[in-house]
Amino acid sequence: MNIIVPVKQVPDLVEELEINEDGTDLDRDYLSYKLNEFDEHALEEALLLKEEHGGTVTVIAFEGEDTDKALYTAIAKGADRAVKITNDLPPGTPNHVLAKALASVLSGMEYDLILTGVQAADDRDGQLGVLLANYLDVPHVSVVSGVAPNNGAVTVQKEYAGGVMAEFEVDLPAVLGVQAARQTPRYAPVSRVRQVMRQAEIEEVEASDTEAEVGSSIRRMFKPEKGAGAQMLEGSPEEIAEQIIKILQEKGIKK
């Protein structure tokens, strides 16, 4: 099975996010980027499928900050190919545009399965995987946490609330939005990443279509109002523990 994993760099939420002067975007000068954590799961699931059933894994990403690092890391983990889309699509480009561009690149490639992360922290205009599937006109299922090949199709589990899951059979090719891989995404030893950086090559392609109707624009970005928020408890751990117990007693939760 040949699997394509489109991955996306998203702003690292460990950093404090600031909003730019006109209030319509993040202040991107000081942002750092990190691979979308759901994409890590998609990649892991793809690698597991490849290890179990053969085939190839191709990782594909848009050029941007630290993209190379993410792609080399993916190869170090076991991906066979890394492709970089070199169109000038700045961070924050709407998913409709990215999905269309991806679709134009993927239509020239052979694949059985496309695994993406189910969502990303900046999916303002919808999830990339679902958009991509519809541009490609291939079936999709999102919030997937289990994939197994089954006679030219795949059997997938889709998660609903409350631990209920639905099982579907999906004809290939298909797009799956991965919620969680069967195991914690593997570690890429830095020695191997460095070796990959010296030896492996990232293929570069240009997307032929980056025109998509997004139909929405950002008017304003703001940090959530600090509502009343929590009343903060201060002091030593013991003092805090005592305050908590007092609160629990007042609320009648603890005698």
Partner: peptide, 23 residues
């Protein structure tokens, strides 16, 4: 914007060419 709705909203956005805002 649930597990089911995620599969629908983006799909109709493309199919019917409708603007979509999620989350």
């Amino acid at each position: 914007n649930t597990s089911m709705g995620m599969d629908l909203a983006a799909a109709v956005s493309v199919k019917n060419n409708l603007p979509l805002v999620a989350y």
